[in-house]
Amino acid sequence: MSSGAPGYNFPRMQITFWGVRGSYPVPGPQTVRYGGQTSCVEVRSSGGGCLILDAGTGLRALGQKLARESGGAAGRYHVLLSHVHWDHIQGLPFFEPAYIPGTTIAVYALLTAADELQQVIGGITRHEFFPVPLDSVPAHFQYHEVEPGVRMTLGEFLVLPIALNHPFGAVGYRIDCDGASVAYVADTAPFTDVLHKQHFLRGLEPLSDADRETLAQIRADLVKAITRCDTVIYDTHFLPDEYKRFPHYGHSTPEHALALCVEAKVRRLVLYHHAPGHSDDLMDQVAKDYAAQGEAVGVEVITSFEGMELDIEGAP
């Protein structure tokens, strides 16, 4: 019996989705139920420890909640970035704790070029873009480089960065805490059609044998990293017909995610990073279709929406 069964009250991790949308925020009547804000997930340990996965526009509301909870007192926050495309970082200047003196915000990210992380991430608040530079806010920002395959201990959390396949590089994270594990796999393309490097792609380019080997290695490492995770949050931006048109954009479909989760014996897959054009009604259909597809292969599939909270269960 799993520790999450009714009647049991074992301590466990909880995650909350603050932004589930990809690319850019989409307000309006079509996104009221699933939400319009971009990538941001809060992970809580049973002891109250907090990790923040990505700093998209969902981070603003999370920051308001954290500042309310702390009563305006200084705190220490860990923000793990998958990569620094705008939809994953543009919430940072609007993160309320950044304006509370004494607060420390430790940002973890992949170094993808010679530029320092502080320059790249701080660069989103150069004066042309935002009136208050991150370097001069009351909170203290720290920048830490992550390396795929090299574990980090952040408070109660054990964190494993995982290489992904996305333009200019991205990392996923496996997080272990309270005897349970959750993985965050965004943003990534599948591992068959494109190997994303550091140049602009107008469309598909031929793969070399070395490219194919690299892709197979990234995929094998990913499967190994997420093996037997209770819950995997995965970039499923595209539906299959959309993927066929844009295979070079760096995103996956629920089919791609489900195949990996089956292979890695994952209990539950969470569809995430919804395309901005996907309306609430379409997402209802997606949720229904893929819940059934998952059931057929023994994986629970749920579709994330803004405000969704999930308990992460320990191994049975």
Partner: peptide, 26 residues
Amino acid sequence: PDGTSLEATLQNQLAPHYSPLGGLEN
């Protein structure tokens, strides 16, 4: 903008770190 140009600013918005477009030329 002060200390830079409009073109450099928009190029920077689309720089490969921040956007898969990589630059205005794309």
